[in-house]
C-alpha cells in the first residue's frame, strides 16, 4: 500500500492540552515523521493560519511547500471575499496551482465569519466548477449541521468531510455519503472496530480517504487498522492513497 494522508498539520500551535511528544513546528520536521511512518504525501496546512491570520498563513505554507517533497500538497484557508484579503475567486485557481495547493479549507469560528454557503459562495462556486476539494472539518469552527446545510447548497461539491469525534459517527456521516455523491470521508477519527468494512459495504471504497490528523493522533494506528481490515487489497489501496490522488488529479492542481 502507498499511503497519502488527507489530514496533516504542522506549525507552532497544536492542541496545547495534549502532551505531544514533540510538536512539528516546521514542515521538514513533519516530513521526517512521514518518513518514519512510511507516508508518501498528503494534504497539509499550517495550524498557525488559524490564529496568525489567513494571509500570512497561506503565504508561509506556500513558501514552505517550495522545498517540500513532491507529493505533499497544501490546503488553502478561505475567508469571505468581501474584505478583499485573499485572491478573488477568479484568480484563486491559478494561485493554488502555482503554490501547490491541493484543497481548500475554512475555519469560520477562528476567522469570525458565517459558517454558511452564502458567505463563501464565489469561492465555493469556483471550487465546484474546478472540482477542487473543499475540506469541511468539524474541529475547525463548523458544526456537522452547518456542513450539511453547506452541502445542501452545493450538493455536487467535491468535499472532504472530517468529523472530530472519536466515538462512532456512522449515523451522522452516512447521510452525507448517501446524499452528496462527490463527498469523501476522511477517516482520521474513524477508529471503530470493523468500522471500515461496514462503511465500505455502505458506500464503497472510493469515498474514503486515509487520514491521521497527525500530529494530534498516531499515523501507525490508522495504517494498522486499514492493513488488517477485511477489505480487498484493491479497496485498501484506494483508501490508502489512490482516492486522494484521484481527487487532486481531477482538480488538475
Amino acid at each position: 500500500m502507498i499511503f497519502y494522508d488527507a489530514h496533516l498539520t504542522y506549525g507552532a500551535a497544536t492542541k496545547l492540552n495534549v502532551p505531544l511528544p514533540k510538536p512539528n513546528v516546521f514542515l521538514p520536521m513533519l516530513e521526517d515523521e512521514l518518513d518514519r511512518t512510511g507516508v508518501t504525501g498528503g494534504l497539509v496546512y499550517n495550524v498557525a493560519t488559524d490564529y496568525a491570520g489567513v494571509v500570512v498563513g497561506n503565504s508561509v505554507l506556500a513558501n514552505d511547500l517550495k522545498t517540500a517533497r513532491h507529493d505533499l500538497y497544501g490546503v488553502y484557508t478561505l475567508v469571505p471575499s468581501y474584505t478583499g484579503e485573499l485572491s478573488c475567486a477568479n484568480d484563486l485557481y491559478d494561485v493554488m496551482k502555482a503554490t501547490k495547493m491541493g484543497a481548500l479549507r475554512m475555519n469560520p469560528k477562528a476567522h469570525a465569519h458565517l459558517p454558511r454557503a452564502g458567505a463563501l459562495s464565489d469561492y465555493l462556486s469556483m471550487a465546484l466548477e474546478c472540482k477542487i476539494p473543499v475540506i469541511l472539518d468539524t474541529a475547525c469552527g463548523i458544526t456537522a449541521e452547518e456542513c450539511y446545510d453547506l452541502m445542501c447548497a452545493y450538493p455536487t461539491l467535491h468535499a472532504i468531510l472530517s468529523v472530530d469525534a472519536t466515538w462512532p459517527t456512522d449515523r451522522m456521516v452516512r447521510p452525507f455519503l448517501a446524499q452528496f455523491p462527490n463527498l469523501h470521508y476522511d477517516i482520521s477519527h474513524m477508529i471503530t472496530e470493523h468500522g471500515l468494512e461496514s462503511l465500505v459495504s455502505f458506500c464503497g471504497a472510493k469515498r474514503l480517504l486515509f487520514a491521521s490528523d497527525y500530529p494530534s493522533r498516531y499515523i501507525g494506528g490508522q495504517q494498522m487498522m486499514l492493513k488488517f481490515s477485511l477489505l480487498s487489497e484493491s479497496e485498501k489501496n484506494l483508501i490508502a492513497g489512490e482516492n486522494l490522488l484521484r481527487l487532486i488529479k481531477e482538480a488538475r492542481l
Binding site: 462512532p168 470493523h194 498516531y218 501507525g220 494506528g221 494498522m224
Partner: peptide, 20 residues
Amino acid sequence: GTDMPWFSTYQGVGCVLDAE
C-alpha cells in the same frame, strides 16, 4: 485496552507500535 467493539484493536495496537 480497546473498548472493543467501540474501537479497533488493530488501531490501538498500531498506536502503541507507532509511539516513541
